[in-house]
Amino acid sequence: MKLKPTIFVFAIWATGLCHAYASTSHEIECPTEISAAALAINAPEGWSAYAQEGLRLRSAEPALGPPEEKAFLKPGSTKSIKGGSIDSWLELSGSGPTGKWIVCRYGERGEITLSKKLHDNTSACTVSSRREQVQVSCTW
């Protein structure tokens, strides 16, 4: 049986189109620490500020917008693992006016954050926290 050229060209085009729209997982690395030298403390007049050590990374989460907008998202699921947990946000489709962001939290209760805008097509993120290590993986 002889294949017609148009069917062959369509098959190649469709394969390429599917590949172009396939989502890929991307690792996002939050800095593991904010160094003491990077902490700028404006002490009140007559006082001196000193930071003995930096702040360690404690957690991460996606948000709709930068952290000052406080549009943090509740994870769709949380799984307990030995020494930690895995939080998943599986439905991040759509976008707010300022986009999707990943927020990395530092300090005992996440008092300081570093944030970064995510790709507009981000559809899911997973944050694995285990024994002082935080791993972020997002799909777009």
Rank of each mutant, 00 (worst) to 15 (best):
K2H: 06
D120V: 11
G16W: 11
D87P: 04
A40S: 03
W13M: 11
W89M: 05
E91A: 13
R109T: 10
M1R: 01
C138P: 00
V134F: 12
T139S: 06
V9H: 07
I7K: 09
Y21Q: 11
P66A: 09
L73F: 13
F72K: 00
A36Q: 07
L3G: 00
K2I: 12
H19V: 15
R130L: 15
Y50A: 01
G84M: 07
S59L: 07
A20L: 11
D87R: 10
L64V: 09
S137M: 15
E68T: 12
L55N: 04
A37H: 06
C104P: 05
S77F: 09
R130E: 14
V127C: 00
W13L: 12
E108G: 03
S137G: 03
A22S: 04
L3M: 11
I112K: 04
E69K: 14
Q52N: 00
T15D: 02
L73S: 02
T32R: 07
A14S: 03
S93I: 14
K70Q: 11
I102V: 06
I112L: 12
E27G: 04
K79A: 14
A36E: 01
Y106T: 04
T139P: 04
T126P: 00
F72G: 06
A63T: 12
A71T: 10
G84N: 01
A37D: 07
I12E: 01
E27A: 15
Y21P: 00
T24K: 13
K100F: 01
I28T: 08
G65Y: 09
H26L: 05
E69G: 05
H26W: 12
A49V: 06
A60P: 00
A38L: 08
K70G: 10
P31T: 03
F72Y: 02
L92R: 03
I7H: 09
G65I: 07
G96A: 13
D120K: 10
V9Y: 10
A60K: 05
K79C: 13
S93M: 11
E45T: 01
A63N: 03
N42R: 05
G99R: 07
L90F: 13
S23I: 15
K116S: 02
K74V: 14
R56T: 05
A60T: 13
G84C: 09
A51G: 05
W101T: 04
I12A: 05
K117M: 12
T32P: 05
W101G: 00
P31F: 12
E27T: 11
S23C: 02
E91W: 15
S128N: 05
L92S: 08
A20R: 04
P31Y: 10
P66W: 00
T98Y: 14
P5Q: 02
